[in-house]
Write a protein that binds this DNA or RNA. Structure first.
Lengths: 229, 229
DNA sequence: TCTCATGAATTGGCTTGACCAATTTTGGCG
DNA sequence: CGCCAAAATTGGTCAAGCCAATTCATGAGA
């Protein structure tokens, strides 16, 4: 489980703390933060370091700095709340979105697939097989498999989207459904589908990989619907 | 020397100078820049200021800083054994992701396009034309156009993804870049591309709509890259 | 001669302290 | 009450220095 790097640059940690603090305190757009001097002391860093963090936040658009005046929040907050929610969120929509995104992503990935990535994928499927044997829900392995493929696109935006599609972000309902669909044959079926995806990737065959991925996601959709009734 | 005449922040000016210098000297990916101390002296600024500029360039993906080692021009993936994070966030990645998502979404949308939606799209393009005439950046109209199309898929997950791709969520950098790409002919060009998308949608032609959308996004990517250098 | 410890030099990472300029606040005067 | 100048606050920047990680040259040992 590679968490990531340990000692990240200080300015990044500080930026994270500021973001978290802002969110925790529920500050809204336009709100004014403490002065650089105060923030620095509060977070236990020097002013230049705090300053570097502010530049990061400024570039990222979270904050607006007005010389001689202060530091102000520039971001909108908890997204969404657009005009109208089309149809109600449903697992079907989620899977349709995943088909589009992952079905396209795997085409890119197939062409850039390294041997290392292939063996990593095989490793994940082995773990998944063991989990299924043991009667556990291989949710983690399933996610790892899809994320590994996404990462092979070399496109961090696509990777993030795929990751988000696995979280609650785009469909809290679907996340809840995952809990109760651990039927027996369900996962062994999914495992087979994963293996055929891996096989296509091993041969660097983009179209077959896409077909396998879409078949898998369509089958998953149907499995969910069955559980739902 | 930093004397300058613009009220822009020093770190931005310094970052510009470094970009320009790199380009002028024809340095290639992976090349190593002078040390912070040397660069600071060379550009006539203090080390903290030079440092702030480097953070901007790092976030923007132009430069990679290796502690104790040096400052390097960000290089492409070393081909093998990468497991690591992909490329840094960049407008290119954003646009590639948008091509995938919106290019697929518009196929669905074309088949479900209502007359109301079509006239709403036309209305938005009229507004956009007026904004361009007046010399304003029609960012709002651009977003509205793409979101209206996404919404026609009837899939709320896809709609959210497209919305998020316009927000800070997937590429804060790209959002910042929008500030400086308000060149004259840029938007009128984009307007024409939008109109050809609308035309394809009017005829309920999914494939032509997709082609127009992808052409538009590819052109947008190129426009951004030009501005960026 | 080649290998590889080992320590000096180099380089980024971060802090302290200070001064300037723009903005905001304060307080006194009409 | 209203207006304007002084004072306080705040961001902008610089200078000098210490620490830790990385590099690289050097010399001892195989």
């Amino acid at each position: 489980m590679g968490k990531s790097d340990e000692p990240r640059r200080l300015y990044q940690q500080v930026a994270d703390q500021i973001r978290a603090s802002v969110q925790a305190k529920g500050l809204k757009k336009g709100a004014r933060l403490p002065s650089e001097r105060d923030l620095a002391q509060e977070l236990g860093v020097s002013r230049p370091s705090l300053r570097e963090a502010l530049i990061a936040l400024e570039i990222e658009g979270t904050v607006e700095i007005r010389g001689g005046s202060g530091i102000y929040l520039a971001m909108e907050e908890p997204r969404s709340a657009d005009t109208g929610p089309a149809l109600g969120e449903s697992p079907s929509e989620l899977m349709q979105a995943r088909s589009i995104v992952e079905g396209s992503a795997i085409i890119l990935a197939a062409g850039r697939m390294t041997d290392e990535a292939l063996s990593a994928l095989k490793q994940v499927l082995d773990d998944m097989a063991r989990s299924v044997e043991a009667g556990r829900d291989p949710l983690g392995e399933d996610k790892a498999f899809h994320l590994l493929i996404a990462r092979q696109t070399g496109n961090s935006v696509i990777t993030k989207i795929v990751a988000d599609l696995f979280e609650e972000r785009y469909s809290p309902l679907a996340a809840r459904l995952q809990d109760r669909f651990g039927t027996p044959g369900t996962w062994s079926q999914a495992l087979e589908e994963h293996q055929s995806i891996l096989e296509a990737l091993s041969q660097r065959d983009p179209l077959q990989a896409q077909a396998a991925m879409c078949r898998h996601l369509e089958a998953s959709r149907r499995r969910w619907l069955d559980v739902q009734g």
